[in-house]
Amino acid sequence: MTGIFETVPWGPLLFILLAGALPTQIFRWLGVVLAGRIRDDSEALIWVRAVATALVAGVIAQLVLDPSGALAETQLWVRVGAMIVGFAAFYLTRRQVLVGVLAGAATLLAVTALTGLGGPA
């Protein structure tokens, strides 16, 4: 943070609104404008939804392969393995999301408890 954002006590809050909230909301407003007259059964929407889905899939990969905070201290192969176990549990239980989430998180915790933390500090 630089300049005005450090000179006043509410500077960080202003920084959050201008450098964080504004660039975020702009894309939601733009989405409403562009959605204009697209019908919800149109071919264009299938494509847009595929793009949105692939983007979120990218967020998933980023969170697992290049995490921040506490998760970064676990080992990469444990995170990837826990994702695979979680998805397999979800798929084999006729797509129960809760089962998959619990199986994945339990795998991460159990294996990390046994083998230790070990990611980059």
């Binding site: 975020t24 894309f27 989405g31 959605a35 697209i38 929407l45 979120v56």
Partner: peptide, 11 residues
């Protein structure tokens, strides 16, 4: 990513 999500959700 919020743009395509919004475009697909609004309709």
């Amino acid at each position: 990513r919020l743009l395509p999500m919004t475009v697909s959700l609004i309709p």
